[in-house]
């Protein structure tokens, strides 16, 4: 039925104002998450204390028994920890999405005249920022235990960009999964059953050379390995993999990381948008 009095909505009328409000709404939603941190600093444990614990555990406990090429385990370890935590970026957003849906917060948002996309963009933006905060904490932590980027500003910046891209990609994965799973517990199980092992079956903490053949193949093709290798090279913490050794993804880790990250985003971002819109007609 058309409007009885012939009025048209005053707001959201042109594409330009819609876009402006889309940004403003996204920021409002993202800000909400950042405010949660103010009231619940423990929310940050996952991106701060946990990585620090990993650094200390591996640097001083396992590191004492792990031999790596070049002999400097801390230099080997830190890029691995960075990449692992970028993988974990999928977890908090998954839990946040599930909780918001269960508690009716998403429904409240959807009954407001705000941009629909902003709910998703805000969630992704806030989770990405949180993950970046975690990365900053880890970099400082790494510097304290003796890790150093060795190849100058440009190369270091490039390494950070690779990590950022991967963090963002995993955030979109988490956004989609958060819209699919039904409970926070399910979201956590995905974290522990899928994401956690993925970060270990790789060159993250140990060289893959010592693994059984079939596992080594999986580890070498694992996108996490490409990201770790890329950051190790760009930070100057490891030599490039020479031609004839390892997989193509390890020989060209930066390009491979960009491709993996791009593919994840290209696949999961539209999927998350689709899923979010589909909830409308459910």
């Amino acid at each position: 039925m058309a409007a009885i009095d012939g009025r048209t909505p005053v707001r959201s009328s042109t594409a330009w104002t819609r876009l402006q409000w889309g940004f403003a709404d996204s920021w409002t939603v993202a800000r909400r998450h950042l405010m949660h941190i103010r009231y619940m600093p423990d929310k940050l444990l996952e991106v701060t204390i946990q990585p620090i614990m990993f650094v200390l555990l591996f640097a001083y406990v396992f590191g004492s028994a792990i031999a790596v090429p070049g002999g400097n385990y801390k230099a080997f370890l830190m890029p691995g920890i960075f990449a692992q935590n970028m993988m974990f970026a999928a977890m908090p957003i998954m839990a946040a999405m599930v909780q918001d849906m269960q508690r009716g917060v998403i429904d409240r948002f959807r009954s407001l005249p705000m941009s629909r996309a902003a709910v998703l963009i805000g969630h992704i933006g806030a989770s990405f920022l949180e993950s970046m905060l975690g990365l900053a904490v880890m970099v400082v932590c790494g510097l304290i235990v003796g890790w150093r980027p060795l190849l100058g500003v440009a190369s270091t910046g490039e390494a950070i960009l690779v990590l950022m891209l991967f963090s963002f990609a995993m955030t979109t994965v988490g956004a989609f999964l958060g819209l699919v799973v039904k409970s926070v517990e399910a979201a956590q199980s995905i974290g522990f059953i899928v994401i956690f092992p993925l970060t270990f079956v790789a060159n993250t903490f140990v060289p893959t050379a010592g693994m059984p053949g079939w596992l080594r193949a999986a580890a070498d093709w694992n996108p996490v390995s490409a990201v770790v290798q890329a950051t190790r090279q760009l930070f100057g913490n490891a030599a490039a993999v020479p031609p004839g050794h390892g997989t193509w993804t390890l020989q060209h880790p930066v390009i491979a990381s960009a491709i993996f990250g791009g593919l994840l985003i290209a696949f999961f971002l539209p999927l998350a948008v689709w899923r979010f819109r589909r909830m409308l007609s459910k």
Binding site: D25, T28, R31, R32, M35, R103, V105, L112, M114
Partner: peptide, 26 residues
């Protein structure tokens, strides 16, 4: 809309909730 379906954010203050809603009403 209020009631079963819409909900307030438990991890914000009462004022934060209202200000956020105001912002989302533009």
């Amino acid at each position: 809309l209020a009631g079963q379906q819409a909900s307030v954010d438990e991890y914000l203050t009462g004022r934060d909730n209202l200000v956020m809603a105001g912002r989302l009403y533009h």
